[in-house]
Design a protein around this nucleic acid. Sequence first.
DNA 1: TAGATGACTCACA
DNA 2: ATGTGAGCCATCT
Length: 103
Amino acid sequence: MFREEVYAIVKRIPRGKVATYGQIAALTGDRLRARAVGNTLHRNTEQFAVPCYRVVNARGELSAAYGFGGREEQALLLRLDGIEVENGAVDLERYGWNPNECE
DNA sequence: TAGATGACTCACA
DNA sequence: ATGTGAGCCATCT
């Protein structure tokens, strides 16, 4: 299922980096699925096993309706990963995950 | 089965 | 720089 693919990709995100919905959507096949990716993660059933906190929008901003404790918790987790979160957003130029590098 | 929703993205005013 | 509109897709009710 599409959801599982999204989960797998999110799980592949290395610690210390973040990915955008569009990026994940592109990895699943089409970048136009960005919306579906977000929705899928929102309805995700494996949030406990999927680091969805490493997933942000195209601007690097955290999700406003994070299904956990809100962007605060998400920001905290990102900081634990070594990512600097400023005003609920990260620098994709620095922490943006490059799936081609496959760490 | 069909309709509505959403953690998206891009473009234009 | 912010606000609104349109396009796309998967999941939910």
